[in-house]
């Protein structure tokens, strides 16, 4: 198949109770961007969690997801090679900036010296040379985003998911960082799924736009179980 490379959705549908949240069919080629837009609660984050394999069990998923020709639907999250950036950078506070990046680097890059070199290079790539020993908590918002981005890219993902990224950055910085992420995705030939509320994001991404319809939130009255962390 010529379109084996990239991310392919095979009549994917996600339902919650009786509500169909998402239906998606089609292909995101390497280096292309699929932008997903829709009102709050329409299932955007859910779609990304289904792709990355961390969706809550309450969601019923039908159809398939293929990455570079491989069906990843039943795989564990860590086996999918799907990188994801959340709204929060979620840098690990117990590790230094360099430690966070080394965390992303695969173990196949062996030797302390070589790993160190790769970490330094990654930092330099986003203009943070010399930051390796800093505490992530002392970084500005924009710096944290860049570290989280490089941590993810160092793990050599085969696809990129962005969930309303960079909400706390001012407009100018946001544009630049968005551009940096998309450029890297293009040079590394990664398919990207970008979730956003923001028309500017969508325009800059330039790819196809998929709109999720608001489902009728009032029809399912069962209480939803608590999920995620209290923090």
């Amino acid at each position: 198949m010529t379109d084996a490379a990239g991310l392919r959705f095979d009549r994917l549908s996600i339902t919650l109770g009786r509500n169909r949240l998402v239906t998606l069919d089609g292909h995101v080629a390497p280096g292309d961007v699929l932008t997903v837009m829709g009102p709050s609660g329409s299932g955007k984050s859910t779609l990304l969690s289904v792709i990355s394999g961390t969706a809550a069990a309450v969601f019923q998923v039908r159809g398939g997801i293929h990455l570079d020709g491989r069906d990843i639907t039943g795989l564990a999250p860590e086996a999918r090679r799907v990188g994801i950036l959340f709204q929060d950078e979620l840098l690990f506070p117990h590790l230094s900036v360099g430690g966070n990046l080394a965390f992303g680097l695969p173990p196949s890059v062996a030797g302390r010296r070589e790993r160190r070199r790769r970490v330094e290079a990654a930092l330099a790539e986003v203009n943070l040379a010399g930051f390796a020993n800093r505490d992530p908590a002392t970084l500005s918002g924009g710096q944290q985003v860049r570290v989280a981005l490089m941590r993810m890219l160092l793990s050599e993902p085969r696809a990129l998911l962005l969930d309303e990224p960079f909400p706390r950055l001012d407009a100018g910085l946001r544009d630049r960082i968005r551009q940096a992420v998309l450029d890297r995705a293009r040079t590394r030939r990664l398919p990207v799924v970008l979730v956003t509320h923001d028309a500017a994001d969508a325009r800059a991404a330039g790819g196809r736009i998929h709109h999720l319809d608001p489902h009728e939130a009032g029809t399912d009255l069962r209480p939803s179980p608590r999920t995620g962390d209290p923090a």
């Binding site: 860590e78 090679r81 959340f86 962390d229």
Partner: peptide, 20 residues
């Protein structure tokens, strides 16, 4: 465990390829 965002840390680490 209620004081640290344990589930989210785990999600991030697993997206980076780590076993649970």
């Amino acid at each position: 465990l209620g004081q640290v965002p344990s589930a989210r840390s785990r999600t991030v680490a697993r997206a980076l390829g780590y076993g649970p």
